[in-house]
Amino acid sequence: MAQTLAVTWMAGLRRYVVYVGFLLVLLFFAIVLHDDGFLTTRNLLNIVQQTAPITVMAIGLVFVLTAGEIDLSIGSIVAVSALLAAVVMREQPAILGVAAGLGAGALIGLLNGALVAYLRLPSFLVTLATLGLFAGVGRTLTNLRSVPVTNDLFNGIFGSGKLFGIPSLVVWTTLAVVVGHFFYRETRFGAHVHATGDNPAAARSSGIKIQRLRLGVLVLSGMCAALAGLLYAGRLQGARYTLGESDLLTVIAAVIVGGTRLNGGLGSVFGALVGSLLMGTLNNGLILMGLSVSEQLIARGLIIVIAVAISLREPER
């Protein structure tokens, strides 16, 4: 009886670890940094805005991981999409830049998906290869040069602008979470993603076209990464080949801490949002605490290990 209770309690903790962890981290920084500007609206808003691209990528990855696949190429997609959009917008209106950026993400996702679905290659290897491939494309696209974005409309919508007084990056985050959650939980597509990741054989025999679904989630992930690229380009008012380079591990950490299973079948869009905010808050708070860079890395690593340990530990059978 006591054992059952303990197991139930652990299961509950696992499920909500990211929310509890996030609150604990917030509380900790609020106390330690109470007079160092941490709790100001501006700083908290900064955290949400800074994590917007990570959140958007994390939502795409929730679908991919739930379907039992992985997408390692997102960092390179960010750079290629942002650069392409910036280059197009030198001469063309913002709408074409956005289309070029998102289109590039969709095409790269399509390439990943086709290789996985129709050549039956493991997504880990395919996207590892395209990660390198498109990092190279990003570097050659503008010969390593940064491209400024001077289109105010674009910079407003994707970067520093406001909609009804709400910063546009907050709007994008909210939109991505709401739409992502709806598709993940409330549609047949979402249900099929879960079923495929949980038990591909069973999903296939119940009539789900699992290869097409694998292609679908990788295209979705590519487009999410492309949108993240546009958000970076808007915020920085320019694009550079290094954009997104270091984001992959942060995104994976955010998604896993947020309760999505690495081997498929289970996940959470809200969890990914909170996971992403947790990463952003950690970065922010540890800097404000005045820690040295090495100390920041150690502290962040330890906290992620603890969170992942609690959220991933399978109950003993």
Partner: peptide, 19 residues
């Protein structure tokens, strides 16, 4: 009061300034 490392990432540098 603070020391940061942007890891050669321009977006991270902006985040560091804001923080």
């Amino acid at each position: 009061v603070a020391v940061t490392d942007a890891g050669f990432d321009s977006a991270r540098q902006q985040t560091d300034v804001e923080t």
